[in-house]
Design a protein around this nucleic acid. Structure first.
Length: 423
RNA sequence: GUGAGCGUAGCUCAGCUGGUUAGAGCACCGGUCUGUGGAACCGGGGGUCGUGGGUUCAAGUCCCAUCGCUCACCCCA
């Protein structure tokens, strides 16, 4: 197929059922986030590259090899957003949201971009919904965020999920842990994969996440202590409080000491929600606390916690569990002119019903039988026949396609009948 | 970036060891059907068989290359 008739690799048009799934996920996020007092925010889909370099972290895979970065005409480096949090925190700083009542709770939905090789559940343009609570360090907010991300997914009907909870500690805890890992792993460096040898320098914790066979065997043999053993007093107390709040809220989680987020800004609480039927990319969503992010972006201290859900992955999971999205509302009324001369009249009649009724009309005269068939095919609830008699009387013969009930009515009465049937 | 599988109509696919103008179902348009539908039947439009090269009297079919898609690695939502 010619280049101009094909979407770019890793991007997709969303239509019909796919779009219905997306809408369903976004609406569930809206409902739950707004129930918790969050308001919606929409940030630009591109930012100054530094927002992500400094926010997401220079050693992260996202920044090192997955960003769509380009220069504008003035030579400024811009990047299509690979995730939502950095931009939201940038907006928090830019608009002085620190003077709003704290914490500021925000939710969003939109496209994200990462230059990866596409596979199931992974695209170059994908969509996330997300939630951020900025300006509070209390463990209640962590539990609130985790609970929301979990309940949205269960509310969508999903059940084959596991919520993995961990803590990556505070920055100094991680330094101690990384030092420990280097000490234990360095003597065996030659047994590590190439990537992991590099991580030994840049970010040893990421090695724990490695799925390379050699790495797995070595990690198994060394019986390394988990990050959770290295939590400082403050981080440990915080983590225990988060767990207690989650138990009180009835959110089922399992502790996962290996959880290591791919973004450098995370501290303390960190979680991922996985789905059993998903394939290699099994995370439906994830989140964590990012108390240092504001300062990385040059702002004052502003603790925060948030999460994101991968809309495409949630859709795949829903489909795998046999869950259907809410269908888009169809036509209320399909108007059929019975003679060619009445086509313009059909337009006028349909237009008079807008926007109270979803009304469409046929551009060609139809025999009544054909017209009803066509209305059925269009997914309309009612068909309206417009023949010479109706035209002369200023009426429309309207038929309920489901019940077969039929009435000849004036436009106002048509509106009333059809809308009445809705309620 | 690496590996594997797959590319025939809008969709799902058939095309046997190479053999006359490339097929089906669904969908779309029209008719049978002159004011009452969902059916049935009949007909129609729609393909440079991903692309380029090669082998051959002859290529959708065999060979090479290339592009695309998918899945997996890596990593993540």
């Amino acid at each position: 197929m010619a280049v101009v008739t094909r979407a770019v690799k890793g991007t997709h048009d969303l239509l019909r059922e796919t779009l219905a799934y997306h809408r369903t996920v976004v609406e569930a996020t809206r409902r739950w986030a707004e129930a918790a007092g969050a308001e919606e925010i929409a940030t630009p889909i591109f930012e100054h590259t530094e927002v992500f370099e400094r926010g997401v972290g220079p050693t992260s895979d996202i920044v090192q090899k997955e960003m769509f970065t380009f220069s504008d005409r003035g030579g400024r480096s811009l990047t299509l957003r690979p995730e939502g949090t950095a931009g939201v925190v940038r907006a928090y700083l830019e608009h002085g949201m620190k003077v709003w009542p704290q914490p500021v709770r925000l939710w969003y939905a939109g496209p994200m971009f990462r230059a990866e090789r596409p596979q199931k559940g992974r695209q170059r343009q994908f969509h996330q919904t997300g939630y951020e609570a900025i300006g509070a360090a209390e463990p209640e907010v962590d539990a609130e965020a985790v609970a929301l991300s979990w309940r949205i997914l269960t509310d969508l009907g999903l059940s084959r999920m596991r919520l993995k909870l961990g803590s990556v500690g505070d920055a100094e805890d991680r330094e101690r842990y990384n030092a420990y890992l280097r000490e234990r792993l360095n003597p065996h460096a030659e047994q590590l994969s190439e990537d992991s040898r590099r991580r030994l320098e840049t970010n040893p914790m990421r090695i724990l996440d490695s799925k390379a066979e050699a790495d797995r065997r070595l990690l198994e043999a060394l019986k390394l202590r988990p990050m959770l053993d290295f939590l400082g007093e403050a981080a440990r107390t915080h983590f225990e409080a988060v767990q207690a709040r989650l138990r009180a809220l009835g959110v089922p989680f399992e502790l996962d000491p290996t959880i290591v987020r791919g973004l450098d800004y995370y501290v303390r609480t960190s979680w991922e929600i996985h789905h059993e039927l998903l394939g290699a990319q099994s995370a439906l969503g994830g989140g964590g606390r990012y108390d240092g992010l504001s300062e990385l972006l040059g702002g004052p201290p502003a603790p925060g916690v948030g999460w994101a859900l991968g809309v495409e992955r949630v859709a795949i999971a829903m489909e795998a569990e046999g869950l259907s999205p809410a269908p888009a509302p169809g036509l209320d009324l399909y108007i059929v002119p019975l003679e060619p001369a009445l086509v313009p009249r059909a337009l006028e009649v349909a237009a008079a019903f807008w926007p109270e009724l979803r009304a469409q009309y046929a551009l060609k005269a139809r025999k009544p039988g054909k017209g009803l068939q066509e209305a059925e095919k269009k997914g309309a609830r009612f068909a309206g026949l417009l023949g010479p008699d109706e035209a002369a009387a200023g009426t429309l013969t309207v038929k309920n396609l489901k019940t077969g009930e039929q009435r000849t009515l004036r436009p106002e009465e048509v509106k009333e009948w059809i809308r009445g049937g809705k309620a």
